[in-house]
Amino acid sequence: MSSSRRSRQASSSSRISDDQITDLISKLRQSIPEIRQNRRSNTVSASKVLQETCNYIRNLNKEADDLSDRLTQLLESIDPNSPQAAVIRSLING
């Protein structure tokens, strides 16, 4: 069933076709590991892709928050003027 380009409701982005949105969702899907590893089916519903994307972003943000707290504790245990910090800086920049 072919759908017309114009939607029934006025929208500022009505010129974007469904095929282009489908293409964008396909590219988004390749960024999600859970769906990426799903080899059984080559096709996934758009709704599921979006749901997994939201979950994945939330997980990444939580992981970054946890790592931030851990980095805070580690930075306090190391004096920035100590030779250890200098070694760390040289390792990172080297």
Partner: peptide, 16 residues
């Protein structure tokens, strides 16, 4: 809009 959100999310995920 929908296409902008999808494109930005793809890049944001890889940056995160």
């Amino acid at each position: 809009s929908v296409p902008v959100i999808l494109e930005e999310a793809t890049d944001y995920i890889q940056a995160l």
